[in-house]
């Protein structure tokens, strides 16, 4: 589904990703861990098409298409969803209007008619229940004045609405209280099918108790330096990153 080959990315002349290779197949859950500043969010942003970053080398193929060639909105409509580490506030734009526009853009891309108002509200209701998000939040402007945890929940709600093929969740767990963490993780699990895939970026193995990964990668200094099963997360939790740093010559 997703194939990243030798991806090099720089910003303002500074190399941040230095040759990433990653393959994700339908139905898989990949976890990416790694110390602060390793380049995890950069990777997520590049997949989503943020033009701040320069891809200097490498390729990314998503479902047979050259992802790097596409506009961000087209990547989204092809099925890439980014759960932002820091979701953006859009004052004045109601969540309902925002999601309606987004959902209908996705439908248009697939050659479907826009949803009627009542069908849309039905979909909203269904997905709100799935991620247990309060109408008090969805009735407000997009993320405006939301608490950190509420913003994260809203990301998962949007993901549920858009039903992506590949969801990249950038530290969706940080800022969530224990109950919210379980709710969000349940949401992600319920949305899982054999055809879609998830990349979860996280610092805490706790999330991976709920969302059980098939593979865990360690991203360090712009490279994936270790890939193993879910037990790697436990090991990192226990030992921290020093041994990784040492292995890779600090």
């Amino acid at each position: 589904m997703l194939s990243i080959k030798n991806l090099h990315v720089s910003i303002e002349g500074k190399d941040i990703l230095k040759g990433i290779n990653l393959d994700v197949k339908p139905g898989e859950v990949h976890a990416i861990m790694g110390p602060n500043g390793a380049g995890k969010s950069t990777l997520a942003s590049v997949l989503a098409g943020r033009d701040l970053y320069n891809v200097t080398e490498g390729e990314v193929i998503f479902q047979g298409k050259d992802l790097l060639d596409m506009e961000p909105e087209d990547r989204a409509k092809e099925g890439i969803f980014l759960g932002f580490q820091y979701p953006i506030e859009i004052p004045g734009v109601s969540t309902v209007n925002f999601m309606k526009t987004a959902v209908n853009e996705h439908r248009k891309y697939k050659g479907l008619d826009p949803l009627s108002a009542s069908d849309f509200l039905k979909l909203m209701r269904e997905k709100k229940a799935l991620v247990e998000i309060d109408s008090k939040l969805t009735n407000r402007s997009v993320n405006e004045g939301f608490s950190g945890g509420e913003k994260k929940k809203n990301e998962i709600f949007q993901m549920a609405m858009l039903e992506p093929k590949l969801a990249v969740l950038d530290e969706t767990d940080s800022g969530l209280d224990i109950d919210a963490l379980r709710v969000v993780a349940n949401g992600v699990n319920k949305l899982k099918t054999r055809d879609n895939a998830t990349i979860v970026i996280t610092h805490y193995q706790r999330l991976l108790d709920y969302i059980v990964p098939d593979v865990v990668h360690v991203l360090y200094n712009g490279r994936i330096v270790k890939t193993a099963g879910k037990e790697l997360a436990l090991e990192l939790e226990e030992k921290g990153y020093d041994w990784i740093k040492e292995e890779n010559g600090k």
Binding site: A48, G49, R50, E71, P72, E73, A76, K77, F81, L82, F84, P87, I88, E89, I90, P91, G92, V93, S94, N97, F98, M99, T101, A102, E105, H106, Y109, S141, Q158, L162
Partner: peptide, 23 residues
């Protein structure tokens, strides 16, 4: 803000329209 909209499938012109009309 524009990129956030883009990431949800909304192109830049429409994103500006949404934001401006919201404002």
């Amino acid at each position: 803000q524009i990129f956030y909209c883009n990431q949800r499938g909304i192109n830049t012109e429409d994103a500006i329209g949404l934001i401006v009309n919201g404002y």
